[in-house]
Design a binder for these strands. Sequence first.
DNA 1: GCAAATATTTGAATCGTTTCATTGTTACGA
DNA 2: TCGTAACAATGAAACGATTCAAATATTTGC
Lengths: 337, 337
Amino acid sequence: MNRSASIKDVANHASVAVGTVSNVLNYPDRVSQRTKDRVLKAIDELGFVRNDAARQLRAGHSRTIGLIVLDVGNPFFTAVVRAAEDAAALHGSAVLLGDSGHDAAREANYIDLFQEQRVQGLLISPVGDVTERLDLLRERGVPTVLVDRLADEAKFSSVAVDDDAGGYLAARHLLDTGRRRLAFVGGPTSIRQVADRLQGARRAVKEDADATLEVLESEGQTVLAGRSVGNSLVERGREGLPDGIFCANDLLALGVMQSLTMTHTFRIPEDVALIGYDDIDFAVSAVVPLSSIRQPTEALGRTAIQLLAEEVESRNPTHRSVVFTPELVVRQSTKAN
Amino acid sequence: MNRSASIKDVANHASVAVGTVSNVLNYPDRVSQRTKDRVLKAIDELGFVRNDAARQLRAGHSRTIGLIVLDVGNPFFTAVVRAAEDAAALHGSAVLLGDSGHDAAREANYIDLFQEQRVQGLLISPVGDVTERLDLLRERGVPTVLVDRLADEAKFSSVAVDDDAGGYLAARHLLDTGRRRLAFVGGPTSIRQVADRLQGARRAVKEDADATLEVLESEGQTVLAGRSVGNSLVERGREGLPDGIFCANDLLALGVMQSLTMTHTFRIPEDVALIGYDDIDFAVSAVVPLSSIRQPTEALGRTAIQLLAEEVESRNPTHRSVVFTPELVVRQSTKAN
DNA sequence: GCAAATATTTGAATCGTTTCATTGTTACGA
DNA sequence: TCGTAACAATGAAACGATTCAAATATTTGC
């Protein structure tokens, strides 16, 4: 069997018209039970599978939406992807996933590919700035929603998480559990996420007159970078040590934790409380389970799809931006003394 | 601009025939420079983008291949995905990615979707056994390659990694660095990967008459499961302790490491050597950098695409299975005494 | 048993591209 | 000047599904 069966083959085999087969597939109520049975039997016998290309051609658009993420390996995006897939399934569409890997050229490739596929719309976490190509897409009327990046509402809808609020939440929690000499670990501050989280932390500390915040800039956002910051803290000795540390992400926090616990000079949370950001899977299984700030990834993904659906349905292009507030997850590393 | 421009619009605008526009797009050499310029100008002015559905319909197949993985969050699959995308790009095709999340229903959905899309072929890490649906696909002549699972060569091509060899490699390394009382941590042994790795370790231990292997079954493959095994080892005290531990994956190994280092009774690697499996990103940044067994994910992805290309091109269905040998990565946790 | 109303079925037209046999054009050697 | 390649451009036919006005069957009410 070389060429797969078409609707015409099914029609012949069941001795009906092609339109009838189509009706069985799309409007079963219009067809009598008898013919429906015959047609379904023929479909089964021939192993007929709808040709989506032909269907799309006629319909003028596909039933898929494009999703371009910066890095499928990042648990944050993985979760968004999953939520988006599930939400899209409810709308009867499927998600085409592209991974730009922070590479503008790959991103451009995917944008072009998805445009040729006539996707219903596009969800994208853009590499760097909103590019020309993306603007062009918008002008051509392809509904587009930016993910994890705030956008000019005149141009795009977008969903993002409020990092300032997350920073505030983390610092507020440390303060509320009695800590007074806080430290922020993260860097470089040129990264928007890091800067916003720090700003939120500053805001919380200002509210308590007797509290202080020290900034320890790290070289990157890895476990190793965290460990190196931790080591410098250990060298300082007991008197200079902050009693509450907020790390810009969980990897940093795990590194700091390794340094502090290895020496056995400091106990977490008795001597120092420690909180991270992102609530990655490893947070719960750290030596001391790590408190963290959780981003509502499922809601983000779901909302992205919903905004996209709104754009697709409404003819006139009004855009919306939705900002989510992250959530505090308390574990042992910040238990009150 | 409501409906996007078609090739016919371009033809009118440039005052040429539709066939000529098509030639400019597909066989630029057949067209004179003068008309080519005119057509390209028209394409640009109208913002024409090829409609892939129409192209596919005519061609009878798409330029995409489907890839269904068990879990995009798993670093192993993420790496395979990336390699497959790059390799496919070289062949001029794009990858449609689906995440079954170990769920047979989602897997089935993707198989159906991809079939409607008339993908050129399918790469799949099946949930559980090779299902009926997959067999059907094969019978319908959709080239299919199984990833990370050995297959009956009469039916499918496949790429996989030799877990027995990996187990052997890990145990052999412990033995070669002077360890004699080995322990294997992993479970449940009903998982093929776990069983194979254990079997390989047994094979290595048999080669050294004075060496022993003890099996410590864990409840799952997580950090917590590892920690609980580790704790029971600590309770045993110094005399009963193995001097070399091989864990069925890195998460387990990290858990065991946490237990042993926290108590400060045992040192790694001086008292106990520890080796994991998978070489996840966290392995290098553990408290004691963890030795591990690395799977050649890039080669796996690349080869999967290549096998698929072979199936697509050759009319007669001969299948190949490629088995990769994993690689030992030595770090501090198994340094010789 | 008949007309009207309703339910079912039909099949030609359409979507946008590629293909390919045909026609038109140019250049060159005899 | 003519014949013949070689090259360019043409446009109708095909791909497979959906749509919809028209044709045909069936049911209903009287």
